[in-house]
């Protein structure tokens, strides 16, 4: 597994742990209601699970497993993939912080979403030429 895939997949596992913890806290409070404001965590839970965990895990495995180039650099424009990874995680963190501090429709949360869109586009541009038959080119 290449180094960037290790970083992406391990980061997604961290988000999985955080997302499951927040989800368990909310579900526990649905049963016991120790914290009456537990629903305030739902935005963070969704962001951690959908973007931080699932989307990022898929990107990491895609980077690892899709066909490589036969000539160096085998993984293509890897700087673009690193950029997508860094911008995606900045986007997740800004979205969570903005949503928590100022609400899901806040300008900070929207900036976070914009960063996520940039990251998705960057990854799509990066991975596009690797979506092809094996052992060609």
């Amino acid at each position: 597994m290449p180094r960037l895939a290790v970083w992406i997949v391990r980061t997604s596992l961290i988000y999985l742990g955080c997302g499951f913890t927040v989800g368990a806290y909310m579900l526990l409070n649905k049963g016991l209601t120790l914290d009456p404001n537990y629903r305030a965590w739902i935005y963070m839970h969704e962001e951690l699970m959908l973007i931080g965990w699932m989307l990022q895990f898929v990107i990491g495995v895609g980077f690892w497993i899709l066909p490589r180039f036969m000539q160096a650099p085998k993984y293509g424009a890897i700087e673009l993939a690193w950029g997508a990874y860094l911008i995606l995680n900045a986007g997740v963190l800004v979205t969570i912080a903005g949503g928590w501090l100022e609400g899901p429709g806040s300008s900070a949360a929207l900036i976070g979403r914009a960063l996520e869109i940039v990251a998705a586009a960057a990854f799509a541009v990066y991975i596009w030429p690797r979506v092809r038959p094996f052992l060609v080119g």
Partner: peptide
């Protein structure tokens, strides 16, 4: 039921992370 559900699912998440983390390697 929801408290137990929360605990069980959390254990599952941690179990997967622990078992997978060291397999994600160069």
């Amino acid at each position: 039921m929801l408290v137990l559900s929360a605990v069980l699912q959390w254990i599952a998440g941690v179990g997967f992370i622990v078992n997978t983390w060291a397999r994600v390697k160069e």
